[in-house]
Write a protein that binds this DNA or RNA. Structure first.
Lengths: 171, 171
DNA sequence: GCGAGATCTGCGGATTCCGCAGTCTTGGCG
DNA sequence: CGCCAAGACTGCGGAATCCGCAGATCTCGC
């Protein structure tokens, strides 16, 4: 343990440029903070500070900013299938016309918890969480396929979740 | 606000049965606690207690238990594409023979952060996070397709993450 | 050279976390 | 039917943490 990321505090720190998609640039210290919180979202600021070489207050300010910017969120995650939602599925969507607007429409549906635009035989992948079969059927057939511009969909009903990690930063 | 889930504290509470897959049964109070932590993973125990009608200590014990049991995890989540990982993809896998063992093998790969067994034209869906194209190519062609029992794969490279929520409990 | 803006540090004071002892309820068993 | 063990909740203090704020530092641009 005790990785000690030394803050080079000069060129790197001040770098507040934004990349093309509007997401802020992250320096090594912020990445290290995120890494700490990927291991344990409730880790005290002081402990994080010791690990990344910053004061408690500085860590607190950075974390707050990362949350405000939407770069990261600290939340409880579960397997929906173990928490009362009995049907979950990934839906591949093919679109004609504006992909972005369809993605937007999917984003607005509360049953859809994950939307990503992809390259490949689907234009969009969307993960759906439902109460039961009827609900799932309704969302896919009545709501998604009804969107103007949706050419076709293909569904993959979840049988069992095997892995769900967020610690890519720590490998 | 202030939903006040009254603990019926009799039949419901004591229910420690396990469902078929080994995951413990969750009562209404635990679900309410999870819901609180889905909104904010750092919310103080006292505040959660007020919302669900329990003492601070009781909430703390329940949360600890949920974490120990693996029912939920409190972590920071980000969009990998904004945090230095330049290639991400969903891979659909078709298997001949034992699906479970292939899923297990995928689970053991550090680049794979999400594995789910499905019904549909794929047996398994796996989400991959990589540094760059070479890395992604290596994982898919050299590692996944090399697994004995993998009949075929299809990849969907991520272009843009549009939505990522964990608040299904609060809709 | 100098001011604006952003970040970091170093404080208290309020709040929260944490362990523990005691109470209450349930379920098993002789 | 009585008793005991297990599990869950409450209340309570002491330690640790969170939080806001003032001041110091650094960078950048004019």
């Amino acid at each position: 343990m005790h990785s000690e990321v030394v803050a080079s505090r000069s060129a790197e720190q001040r770098d507040s440029r934004e990349s093309r998609n509007g997401t802020p640039h992250l320096d090594a210290v912020s990445l290290a903070i995120i890494e700490q919180l990927q291991e344990d979202g409730r880790r005290p600021y002081a402990a994080i500070g010791k690990a990344v070489g910053l004061s408690e207050a500085a860590v607190r300010q950075r974390v707050q900013k990362l949350l405000d910017q939407g770069v990261m969120q600290i939340v409880a995650v579960t397997d929906p299938l173990t928490v009362g939602f009995r049907r979950q599925a990934m839906v591949g969507v093919n679109v004609e016309g504006d992909v972005e607007s369809i993605a937007e429409a999917l984003t607005d549906m509360s049953e859809v918890e994950y939307v990503v635009m992809t390259a490949g035989s689907f234009d969009i992948l969307a993960e759906i969480v439902c109460e039961d079969d009827d609900h799932l059927l309704d969302v896919i057939n009545k709501r998604i396929r009804a969107l103007p511009g949706v050419r076709s969909t293909e569904s993959f009903v979840y049988l069992k979740l095997k892995k769900q990690t967020y610690m890519w930063g720590t490998r």
